[in-house]
Each structure stands twice: as C-alpha cells, then as structure tokens.
Amino acid sequence: MMKFIRTLLKPFAAFFEAHAKTHYRLERHSMGLTVGIIIAAGVGGFIEIAPLFTIDDTVEAAPDMRLYTPLEQAGRDIYIREGCYACHSQMIRTLRDEVERYGPYSLAVESQYDHPMLWGSKRTGPDLARLGEKYSDDWHVRHLVNPRDLVPESVMPQYAFLLEAGLDTDSLPDRLAALRAVGVPYTDEMIANADSDALGQAMPDTERSDGVFERYGDETAVRNFDDRPGRLTEMDALVAYLQILGQLTDLPEQTQILPEE
C-alpha cells in the first residue's frame, strides 16, 4: 500500500522538484514573480466568468420579462442606499425548504436587468425575491416606518424618514440613460419621460399615469403607494419597488413544479 502511494506520488514529486528549481531562479526576478502571479491568478477567473457570457442556457429566455419603471428603479436605488441587501437576500435557492417557504426558485433571467444584482449573502430578515403583492402598500409603509409596530419580534431598523423625503426625480433620465449604457433596453422615450413617469406611477387617473401604462404596459401598478396625496416621496419609490419583486416575469411559476399541500 505504502509503495503504491509512493508510486502515485512520484509524478507529483517530480513536478514539484522542477517547480521548486524554477522557482529558485524565479524568485530572483521581481518581474518574473509578477508575471507568474498574474498568470497563476488569472486562469481561474477567466475560465469561470467568460463562459457565462457565451454559454446560451446560462440565462433563460423570458419573452414577457419587463423593465423596471423609473419609480421602481428609483426605489431599487434607495434599497441599495439603505443597505437592505445586508439583511435580505433576493435569491431563492434550489432547495426544497426554500421553495416551500418563499416560492419558485429564482432564475437567472429574473435579475437580467439588475445592475448590480442584489442576491445577498445573509438572511437576517426573510428572502424578498417573491415579495411583490404579498402585502399591501399600507403594510409596507407602516412596516418601514417602524417594523416593530407590526412584527414585535423584528430587528429591522425604522425608515420613517422615507415618508418625509421627497423623491429626486431630476436625476432619473440620467439614471435610465446610464442603465441603457450597460445594457438595459430603455427607449429614448422612456429616458426622456423618466421623471414624469415616476410622478405618474404614483398618481392614478392622471395624464401622466397614462404615459406609464403606454410605455411600461397595462399591468404596471399605478397607485399612490405611500397614501400621501400630492407628494412623491422616497417611500413611494421603495414600496413600488418592493411590490414588483418577483413580478417581472411569470416564467418561474409557469415552468416549475410547485409545492402542494
């Protein structure tokens, strides 16, 4: 047995001897080391990342996939700003208990337009990938104002200031344009009307809101999300975003076996 192992070891040992010898020479040249390190550390990243762009079935095809409206995108930016991703994942893994608790496992296509993705790495709070339309707008507003009013056990911070903070809509055309630059297919019209559309989505039955339906589809949720008439707040934007989570495409529900009880 020992002998067998030793034979097995031989090629390794030989390789290593050669390597050690080369190394002994290499370590006298700083640029040699530099090149060596870059090559050794370059291989893995290249082999794991580059094919994600070339292998077709990496991202599924979802013809019904829709874009974030400017208001939802603004909400997403606030979600990032407040660091919600530090506690909430948006990635239901392919594990039975996750699918049974949160819903169909997440598909790559669902975050196709997410620059950056918000899959998260810690679940101090529950996963939010399928949160959209699970609660009422009013619930979200009250929960964000003080989570412990609704869930006494919660350790989530209060975000009451979002109700007072007016949403900055001026920067929205620029934001959408930057997103188009990295590959989100916003049209010129969408970019030009981004600030008006953000207002319109929180003002049902106005001319502005008609524009939202026109550009983003009839299914778009047009509501006064924070229930404060006449003012577009950061709360409107964040709740609009939370209500769209998991609602961008029906592909997961259509293609997966779902738990039955």
Binding site: G45, V59, D77, H115, M117, V182
Partner: peptide, 26 residues
Amino acid sequence: AVPASLTGAKSYSAFAGVQDAMTQWW
C-alpha cells in the same frame, strides 16, 4: 461601472444578474 452623471455619486455596475454575481464573488 457607468456613472449616472459625472457630477453625482450614483453609478450602475457594468455587469448584471448572474454574470455580476459571479464577478462580485470572484
């Protein structure tokens, strides 16, 4: 990343979704 404007802090990362996730954790 592409900044939304050169006079503001906000930017959007070049990659999205699964490629972004892999790049981030790489």
